[in-house]
Amino acid sequence: MAEDLRDRITKLFQKNVANRLMRALPFQTLLETTGRKSGQPRRTPLGGSRVGDQFWFVSEFGERSHYIKNIQADPRVRVRLNGRWHTGAAHLIHDDDPHERLKSLPQFNSFGVRTFGTNLLTVRVDLID
């Protein structure tokens, strides 16, 4: 029960405060998915790392995250890295250890994911351009 309340408070803060501010920053990394119900682009600020032609990140709420549900419906995504958009295909990596993965990702974001996350899930985006 306490975990559900923490999830709701965290999601409410992210949706109404943090994400709105972060999306406005020109060099904030963004993940763009297609809304599974609306068909409209949905942009989510997040942290992760590009490794070659892949972009890795960890979802703090796993399959309960709306952007993860969007990926499950349509894995075609765009990622904005350093102000430039890249297209790609997202893959949920269930057999990856997200706690280990976070050690290789930007520490500021990883701290937040570790602190507030309750159902961590690794995601890999294979970048096309």
Rank of each mutant, 00 (worst) to 15 (best):
R50P: 02
Q107T: 10
D126I: 03
P75W: 08
Q54S: 11
Q54C: 08
M1I: 12
P98M: 11
A73M: 07
T118V: 13
G112D: 08
Q54R: 14
Q40T: 15
I93M: 13
R42K: 10
R124Y: 12
G52V: 11
P98Y: 13
H86V: 05
K69S: 05
R101M: 11
G35D: 11
L5V: 13
H99T: 10
G112Y: 12
V125P: 04
W56A: 04
A18N: 05
V77R: 03
Q107S: 15
N119H: 15
F13C: 10
T34R: 14
D7S: 02
V113L: 13
L21N: 07
R8L: 12
T122A: 14
R64E: 06
V79L: 02
V113K: 12
E63Y: 15
Q14H: 08
F61A: 00
I9Y: 04
F27W: 05
R101Y: 00
D95C: 02
N19F: 09
R76K: 14
R78K: 13
G62Y: 14
P98Q: 13
T118N: 15
I128K: 04
R80I: 01
H86N: 04
Q40P: 00
R84S: 01
T44I: 06
L31G: 01
K69I: 02
S49Q: 14
R114L: 10
L30V: 11
P75T: 06
R101C: 00
S110G: 14
Y67N: 04
N70W: 07
L121G: 11
H86E: 05
V58G: 10
G35S: 09
I9L: 13
A2T: 15
W56G: 01
A18D: 04
F108V: 06
V51W: 12
D7Q: 14
D74V: 01
